[in-house]
């Protein structure tokens, strides 16, 4: 479930990047790298888990699914927080600087 949520986040951020965000200087590429990197790593984890548990891997209990979904959402939220923090620190459009200097 965590893998699934992260893959959705990776696909959505890539579509946003492709739609023109790469020209906007909003650093959406960073989100793509983060989510794709995590998705690929969880994919490797899932392959090993599947090799160990077999078909049981696809039938998790409701409690496991809920916990993994909660974890997936938390991971996506953490990625977004890191992205916003980097965006505000690097301030490519000078918005933060302008807001601070404005009286």
């Amino acid at each position: 479930m965590t893998l699934l949520v992260t893959v959705f986040a990776a696909v959505i951020s890539t579509v946003v990047w492709y739609a023109g965000a790469y020209k906007s200087g909003m650093k959406v590429g960073m989100l793509c790298f983060m989510y794709w990197g995590a998705s690929l790593m969880w994919l490797a984890d899932a392959v090993f888990e599947y090799a160990e548990t077999g078909a049981e891997f696809f039938t998790p209990s409701a409690a496991e699914m809920l916990n993994d979904f909660y974890l997936g959402l938390s991971v996506v939220a953490l990625g977004l927080v890191i992205w916003v923090a980097v965006l505000l620190i690097k301030d490519p459009k000078g918005v933060v600087k302008a807001a601070i200097l404005r009286k």
Binding site: F33, M34, W36, G37, A38, L40, I82
Partner: peptide
């Protein structure tokens, strides 16, 4: 970027 992002999460 892929490695840092992935391992961080």
């Amino acid at each position: 970027n892929l490695l840092w992002g992935g391992s961080g999460l």
